[in-house]
Amino acid sequence: MTTTHSAASDTGGAGHAPEALLQEHFEATIARDHRIEPRDWMPEGYRKTLVRQIAQHAHSEIIGMQPEGEWITRAPSLRRKAILFAKVQDEAGHGLYLYSAAETLGADRADLTERLIEGRQKYSSIFNYPTLSFADVGVIGWFVDGAAICNQVPLCRSSYGPYARAMVRICKEESFHQRQGYELLMTMTRGTEEQRAMVQDAVDRWWWPSLMMFGPPDDASPNSAQSMAWKIKRHTNDELRQRFVDMTVPQAEKLGVTLPDPELRWNEERGHHDFGTPDWDELMRVIKGGGPCNTERVARRRTAHEEGAWVREAATAHAAKRRARTAKEAVA
């Protein structure tokens, strides 16, 4: 935790710049598109907003392991099994980098995990939907990783250095996952009639929840303006959603599947696709815990955390014993 900075901002005491100057320097750094680093002074609101956003992102990676992880043991070929196993492992790795980025802001991973399993912090609404067939693995790669990339590529230029750097690596891995998902769907649509039906069914179920991943529409997104001003966020929810739709439509055509939106069509004048309105009431319901799988997702995470407590305690106890023995040997 940056206690020295907090003290400085509280007192403005001798030897420290007064808060107005620090604030000015911070704003100039943002304006020049330079990065804020962990030791730099930052407004408390900026720090809190970042901790919240990075923690939610980390939680999403960890909870996001569950819907696809269900299929590792059942993947229908060894190549698909390896791909899926490695993808879910990458998500655990992403969770680790992101919790580390949050820790540079004074947060604590164990505390953030507690907040998640007590339902005090959120994760992406998309992971509260069930995976009903192996085609879901492909569609999650295509839509969910695709949407995540749209959301996250601009974050590679986020004003907070550790977050931006974590995003570069995460985006690279997610683009690989998206390609693998799309390739699975290409293979499946060239397979049997039954497989094509599985793919279309998965597309029908995941399309609207994927559009909701970009969050509520701009006129109902209360925190966006400040995050944009701080360059934590670079584009509005609606801009990113539009980009995702524009990217996905030609991919769907190539795949030979229909996106389940009768209002979807190219608008020559705008140079973008028009599309229907997601069910925002459903998004609010899922965010508030009423999605089909909210309870089981959090329960699984809680069970793993609680059942692992004895292992973590043993590791801590062993490390303490070793330190004590080393100290004793040093004395002797």
Binding site: V88, A92, R300, A304, R312
Partner: peptide, 16 residues
């Protein structure tokens, strides 16, 4: 079968 059930994230990664 340990996936999403490991005692810590580092173990999640290592077992995978």
């Amino acid at each position: 079968q340990w996936c999403t059930r490991a005692p810590e994230l580092e173990e999640e990664v290592a077992l995978a």
